[in-house]
Write a protein that binds this DNA or RNA. Structure first.
Lengths: 223, 223
DNA sequence: CATTGTTTGTAACTAAGTCACAAACAGGTA
DNA sequence: TACCTGTTTGTGACTTAGTTACAAACAATG
């Protein structure tokens, strides 16, 4: 265990695994650096690797038959992809797509080695299952969000959660619509409302939050 | 292996397991018969048992903060509950509710024994993971259905899929609304439309399908 | 047959989502 | 610079879904 690869720093629990299958998995792993907008996997693809994300940002989204797109979740530093887990464990093909949003470093463990560690190491198995199990909860929350009618509240919440330190959000209305699972025009309408009341200032691909308090009040139901 | 319990007939794969932990799990299992409308678990409950459903019907649903109710999935003969799996594997508390709709026979394996077999038997583990993994796909499909705007199409599909051999559906409008994640009035409106065009005949808690072809055409987009 | 709770019908209203554009803008190229 | 092209945003008219607040019909029970 003296030559643990550096990337395991991001996954402290896994660093404690002492198992030959794990050693083999690490030996057969490969580190990749994916450029922005790289398509990690498509709906219908088979799954060849388990994925540890070291750094960067990747969007996992579903393209519905209606043409509407919906973000299921995002992967960042120290995370693993639940859909990949699902496909590896349950078989079948990817039911959604993933694309990098920023340059992303990741470690890939081939499916074969993944299964071996999964069967051999309790620690690894616990880790994989825990991450995976958490995602069902997330999906239920997503369901709740989507069935909730008030887009303005969800929009305000999203803006507050995703604002930069300078209190701005650099995103187009179209992208926001994907995030919230709604239509571009609906987003535009609400943003214009927010602008009328001076809660935000709008410019191309940029939203500047001005009155965070009011936005926050809206989210918490105070108005 | 000469004294396999009879209920394993419903789970043929599991009958092949030859593992002391599995034997122990079976020994410590209990068979229960739950009356209709029995509340199997609530949101916020801890999970004490893995559940094999032998027979009957159980509805797993989420009660949203808005007060709206939404059916996540149903359990029937030969199935196991994914949310239970999720909670057992990932920890935490039940994120939804379950209630029997008909008298339901089930076998309960205590959490402790479940974990032991899960760690010990590859066959058992594969089974659990496969069932579990499949549910994420279902949830994504549910998401798609909910974001799809045309309630009439989803309603027609539901009626066709759930009709009795006599071509009727015994269900109230309120229950249908829960199934499809919408409001009772919306269901009533569409059913009345269906009745106007003589696709169905309505009476209290009963919908008789008359023109399955037209309903089916609606589903497949032919009108 | 009166009471009670459930189921269904209805109308008026608000919000979301769609459609079909037009206008503004950014980046490259002649 | 002026032009072209693709993207982003604005807008209005329209359809559908969801909400609110009832009333009426019905089933079961005492």
């Amino acid at each position: 265990m003296s030559e643990l690869p550096e990337w395991l720093n991001e996954f402290p629990e896994l660093a404690t695994i002492d198992d030959p299958a794990w050693t083999r998995a690490i030996e057969n792993s490969s580190t990749v650096v994916l450029p922005p907008d790289y398509e990690v996997f498509h709906e219908g693809d088979a799954c060849k690797n388990y994925i540890f994300v070291l750094d960067g940002a990747t969007r996992v989204y579903k393209l519905f038959e209606s043409g509407r797109e919906m973000v299921l979740y995002r992967l960042g530093r120290g995370e693993t992809c639940s859909l990949t887990t699902s496909v590896l464990l349950a078989g079948g093909l990817y039911p959604a797509n993933a694309v990098t949003e920023a340059e992303t470093r990741a470690v890939l463990i081939p499916a074969r080695e993944f299964h071996e560690v999964f069967n051999s190491s309790t620690i690894f198995r616990d880790y994989v299952c825990r991450v995976f199990g958490g995602r069902i909860r997330d999906m239920i929350m997503l369901l709740e969000a989507v069935t909730m009618r008030n887009v303005n509240i969800r929009l305000a919440r999203w803006l507050l959660n995703n604002r930069s330190p300078e209190n701005t959000v650099e995103v187009s209305h179209r992208e926001l619509a994907f995030e919230l699972g709604t239509a571009r025009e609906v987003i535009s309408r609400h943003l214009r409302e927010f602008e009328k009341t001076s809660w935000v200032r709008l410019s191309r691909k940029n939203i500047e939050l001005i009155d965070n308090q009011s936005l926050s009040d809206l989210v918490s139901g105070a108005r």
